[in-house]
Nucleic acid binder design. Sequence first.
RNA 1: GACGCUGUAGUGUAGCGGUUAACACGCGGCUCUCAUGAGGCCGAGAUCGAGGGUUCAACUCCCUCCAGCGUCACCA
Length: 481
Amino acid sequence: MAKKFYITTAIDYVNAEPHIGHAYQKIVADTLARWNKLLGVDVFFITGTDEHGKKVAESAEKAEKKPKAFVDEISKKFKEAWKSLNIKYDRFIRTTDEDHKKVVEEFIKKCDKSGDIYKGEYEGYYCTGCEAYYTEKDAFDLVCPVHQRPLEKLKEESYFFKLSKYQKYLLNLYKNHPEFILPKQRRNEVISKVKKELKDFSITRTSFDWGIPFPLDNNHVIYVWFDALINYYTATKQQGKQKYWPADLHVLGKDNTWFHTVYWPAMLKSAGLKLPRTTFNHGFLSFNGKKISKSLGNAISVQQLVDKYGADTIRYFSLRQFPFASGEDGNFSEKSLIQRHNNELANKLGNLVSRVSALAEKYGIEKSDMDFHCIKQTYAEVKRYMENYELDKALNSIFAYIDNTNQFLQDKKPWETKDKRVLYEATNNIKATTILLFPFIPETSERIAKTFGFKISLDELEKPLKTIKIKKSPILFQKIK
RNA sequence: GACGCUGUAGUGUAGCGGUUAACACGCGGCUCUCAUGAGGCCGAGAUCGAGGGUUCAACUCCCUCCAGCGUCACCA
């Protein structure tokens, strides 16, 4: 039986439209999913939207829409954005999906059976003007930052999850499974915080009703986070998908780290379910040097970007520019994107395909006993990088190989010698390059494969190419500016 | 404030005990002409944040300092 790989992205909160920050995460996850598929692994890849909670209810109200109509609309935009970027997921899960609600209810009952849910009082600082609670961090001097008036200390009935009970369990988990929290610096942060103190957390609300009803008490709805995390489990409860549980990799932003590395494993333990293998907590992107912020209104839409630059350019740039594995923040600058598009995609890859296909059309290709050593080596390198989430380095390796092929051509001068075997070799190199590039820039890879008539599959990597008639490729990447 | 991370050519990064300190872009020169005014070759450019220490040997380990950044739970 093939090895399985269950990969998820965070599900996005639908109080605003998708921006490049959301897209970055999906691109990485899609590339990892495609890479594993290429390796012959049985992959299950999900993404989706998180649609409950107070903020969504408020945003809907502002837009003068019913919550459901509102989330339907925004959720659709996320779906469209991922389609335009060729994010090929197996399920797009929404927390308003019927099966999800059922699974969440069952999940809570299981936690209750374990004795981890109790009724208590949620205490916080409340502003009647905002109708919201503030933490002491947000509200200096316990004064509402919006209304500038003192906050009231209020109590509200709420159900709690016994997180405190799992402190030792979690610390053990981090110790015995260092790969549970990647990258390393995030792990350190979590460990030191968990060591300090772990408080139980409130899992229900009564002040609004846009949420899944709490199965143990109908006056309450479930707090969004508790409901949202369970989506990963829900997706595997579908027919035939049970075999994928637990997740092998949760890809998420560092703002979600605490929930995925503390709440989530404790919840799963409580419900008697297996834990995911790895959570990868990546950094944030800024856009042209500025923080992406809904309030600043500078969140450029994914659709706009794709229209402007093309899906593969966005994918390539996102994966090549930022050292994903480091977990550091990065700056998505259009200037750098254009540079990389022109130099790397157009001049190196695009031009190589163009020159080789033109030569092959003119002179033809003829099978030769070529050496696959370099191809094997590049593949091994790329594989190693991919295992470590070093997508930028993997691309660098592939492009070094493209440089090699350009050098090889310069050296052999097939336009003078008309040596069909040289062209055959160059064509094979392009084939290898294309196969390795497929997870990163699928659309372009497919176009190249069509020009040279090969299948995108690892089996083809070292197989000799069929000597079909080749026609000059259309331009793959038009230069920008 | 607590804890943690980072500081390497103009820019983005790699290296993490012994390298002529690497790669990409950018920059300067030369060159081919099959190709998207693309490609190839050569070159300039870094006393590896500062100061101590450990070591036969430090960008690489330790300490101090300076600078920047991150996390600090109900924010998807």
